[in-house]
Amino acid sequence: MSCVIINYGMGNLASVSKALRKIGVEHSISANPEEVMRAQSLVLPGVGSFQAAMHNLNASGLSDAIRQRMNSGDAKLIGICLGMQLLADTGFEPERCAGLGLIPGEVVELECSLPVPHMGWNNLDVRNPLYFQDLQDLDFYFVHSYHFKPAHEADVAALTNYDGPVVAAVQRGPVFGCQFHPEKSQLSGLKVLEHFFTKHA
């Protein structure tokens, strides 16, 4: 199984790569759309702003490659943190901007009475157990100021609570995304990655 971590100039590639090595998933790190088109699984990491990320993905031809690859039906994708948010139709960080459109919904600013960013360890309320088997109620590491609001409730894979429910993971068929950082969430996070690479949606 070939796995590509998509390098579009944003995000902590070193930590994601280290986590995949730890669970024994062979992978390459690439900015090349052709390699994305050949991969069986894609990892879309990301730290930074939605608009800057989409600009990089569009300019390099990676957006089209990711969409085409996922439309072909035999690949899977995991988006992490900003990479999860980019799966949406639309983002607003800092201005309205089109996303990859793989899971319908919008990414908007967190509005709550608690400090933003939502940073630290928080537990999950799992809605789709596929990649969260035995992980209900365990804590994962979050750091984000915007959050994904999927158009369809069926696409919510897990929620967390930060002055109200916040979407912690989304899934639509082979497209999965987590707002938390599995590569920074100790054994619980590695378990989610392991489930993603070994289970089929």
């Binding site: 360890w121 035995d134 992980l135 365990l138 804590d139 969430s185 100790q186 054994l187 619980s188 378990k191």
Partner: peptide, 8 residues
């Protein structure tokens, strides 16, 4: 407080 993770 956060306690043990999966597999522990």
């Amino acid at each position: 407080a956060r306690f043990m993770a999966a597999g522990n």
